[in-house]
Design a protein around this nucleic acid. Structure first.
Lengths: 152, 152
DNA sequence: ATAGAACCTCATCTATAGGTGAGGTCAAGG
DNA sequence: CCTTGACCTCACCTATAGATGAGGTTCTAT
């Protein structure tokens, strides 16, 4: 008989969250999830971590780096499970990030459309090269893609 | 008096392409660009590399990893500068990749919209978690984002 | 009680895309 | 001539996100 309220082992979490045990170790080491230890020093987790890992994976799909995800999760109280309201705030922020990413990629695609066959790459006023330069001037690389995430 | 047809040094390429000297070294080591050496063993490049570097940077913005960019460039004859037709083929292929990326991110955003506040993350039929599982089942991680690039 | 599965830590490795500094060489102007 | 800036190689470092294996311990079921 399985008690659905029993604490989860690393293996349980890994299997049920669809990640490897190494990943669970890694997330705990990075402070993204939290648990306690058994008498014999084995990891134990509340069922709540499953939702946390799910949230982490969704944010990663949206392109949010782990450090930023941690920042966002840290801004939430840790003494209770994630609530719907928490998820609402996180998903809204990440949705906006996603929109910005989509906007940037769409703009690039449109520029690519406009430039296909034009051979203008060597000219100073090519929109593709200029957009790139404008970004480069604002800092180093990938500004649009890696721009600040919520809570960090 | 500056001869616009004179070969470029690494420093020239770096300055004019908007990358660091380390990056030029790196690209040459990876076979993304090619040049020759002066009597004194210093790197020399034809002006053509400027266009190549520009193409590389655009592909990177589209999310194409360097190895795939190299694959695409290797499929092109190296005994002449990049032509408009070459650029046409590359940009069309990358445009499609970009479209796929945009589609995947847009789908994720729509799912996020549908799920905001629904609190369904813990349920097995949440579209966000399922989409994730479907991807995971096809291999490990980031399938949509890193899917095959042209010429590799 | 004991076999075997699951778990522990720690060190090392993978891949991507470069950056940094040491120690030495090359090239051009005053 | 000789200084100075640009260049060379090589080794090692950074960050991200884990994977892998060694050597030893704990848990659980029979």
């Amino acid at each position: 008989m399985i008690d659905v309220r029993a604490p989860l082992s690393v293996g349980d979490v890994a299997r049920r969250a669809g990640v490897t045990i190494a990943t669970v170790h890694f997330y705990e080491a990075k402070g993204l999830i939290r648990g306690w230890r058994s008498e014999g020093n084995q990891r134990r987790y509340a069922r709540d971590v499953l939702r946390r890992v799910a949230v982490i994976k969704i944010a990663q799909r949206a392109g949010v780096p782990l450090a930023a995800i941690k920042g966002a999760l840290d801004a939430l109280p840790t003494d209770r499970p994630l609530t719907v309201a928490d998820w609402d705030r996180l998903s809204t922020a990440w949705r906006d990030l996603l929109s910005e990413r989509i906007r940037a990629l769409t703009q690039l695609r449109d520029q690519l459309d406009g430039c296909i066959g034009c051979g203008c790459l060597s000219m100073a006023d090519c929109p593709l090269r200029n957009a790139d330069d404008r970004l480069a001037a604002q800092g180093k690389g990938a500004v649009l893609l890696d721009a600040g995430a919520p809570g960090s």
